[in-house]
């Protein structure tokens, strides 16, 4: 493509005077870039740096001790367990939901899509509260569950339920727009050629959506491991038993054990960084296949 006066790729080459009607004077550009970078540095970068600096304030030994302390290890394990249940559950749901929404036309489809997105607009605290109202001691099923000897609230099942709720839409909302855009021509061809439904899904649909699927799982997992508000309500904060990593961070911080709090927090921050790196890599490498999903 010949270099034209398009504004979509302006300043990588020195701007000739003829373009000046379509871009700002150099000093305005510099000021805007500077302002934006300063804002991002103050509001986003500095908190991230602070986590690691505070974690290593007393040196690496103190950092390491805080991580291998039994309660911290229990919190890490519990976080992994909860994510290992919640993420596959929402993965399965996401695939099923996007299959029925994208491949079929039926009444109430838009309502269904809205309902799938609903958990995103519910406060995390309310996401926990609703399960307490159902399964808590004074909840609707509370006395029944107590008679049965089943504990959901202040136990692992409650943590899983709350986590499933807050991460509910992640996979589905990545897949639905993509599969809607892809249509069902390829699946119809496969079926006409004699493939079974499952064969069609595994060999035609899945390869088409795999990167968007991974993208959704990645975001789902990050939220599942990092969720605080919802699990805080249902957890009961029993050390070593119902404390996930974010809750453990809170307890340590409230005990003024800052180094340990930031040490555990630094693990979560690393998880966030890994998530961002993989996400960005997916966007660069498979941008076209994800494009529909990213609005």
């Amino acid at each position: 493509m010949p270099a034209d006066t398009s504004i979509s790729a302006p300043a990588s080459i020195p701007v000739p005077p003829a373009q000046s009607a379509l871009t700002e004077p150099a000093w305005v550009r510099a000021a805007l870039i500077g302002g934006a970078l300063l804002f991002l540095a103050l509001f986003l970068l500095l908190p991230l740096v602070a986590v690691f600096v505070e974690a290593l304030r007393r040196g690496f030994d103190a950092y390491w001790t805080a991580l291998i302390e039994p309660d911290a290890v229990a919190a890490i394990k519990l976080t992994l367990i909860v994510a290992a249940i919640a993420v596959p559950a929402n993965l399965l749901f996401g695939v099923a939901a996007s299959w029925c929404v994208a491949k079929f036309d039926f009444r109430g489809k838009n309502l269904l899509i809205t309902l799938i997105d609903l958990p995103f607009s519910v406060s995390p605290v309310i996401s926990g509260l609703i399960y307490v109202l159902l399964f808590g001691m004074n909840g609707l099923f509370g006395s029944y569950l107590r008679d049965m000897g089943v504990q959901i609230i202040f136990a692992v099942p409650g943590l899983v339920l709350a986590t499933v709720f807050v991460t509910f839409p992640f996979v589905a909302r990545e897949l639905i727009p993509l599969m809607q855009e892809q249509g069902s021509d390829e699946e119809e061809a496969a079926l006409v050629l004699g493939a079974s439904g499952w064969q069609t899904f595994w060999r035609v649909t899945l390869p088409n959506i795999k990167w968007a699927l991974l993208y959704g799982v990645l975001l789902c997992n990050a939220r599942a491991m990092g969720e605080f508000g919802a699990v805080s309500v249902v957890s009961g904060h029993i050390r070593g038993e119902t404390n996930t990593m974010p809750l453990h961070v809170e307890i340590l911080y409230n005990e003024y054990n800052f180094v340990a709090a930031f040490a555990v927090a630094s693990l979560l921050a690393m998880l966030a960084l890994v998530t961002l790196v993989v996400k960005t890599a997916l966007e660069w490498r498979f941008g076209d296949e994800l494009a529909a999903a990213r609005h």
Partner: peptide, 25 residues
Amino acid sequence: RLVDALVDLPFALPTAVAGIALSAL
């Protein structure tokens, strides 16, 4: 591109971590 990726940090960083970091800052 790095800055572009950084913009999503608040989506990825657990809220409790953001909370204690901001409060320490």
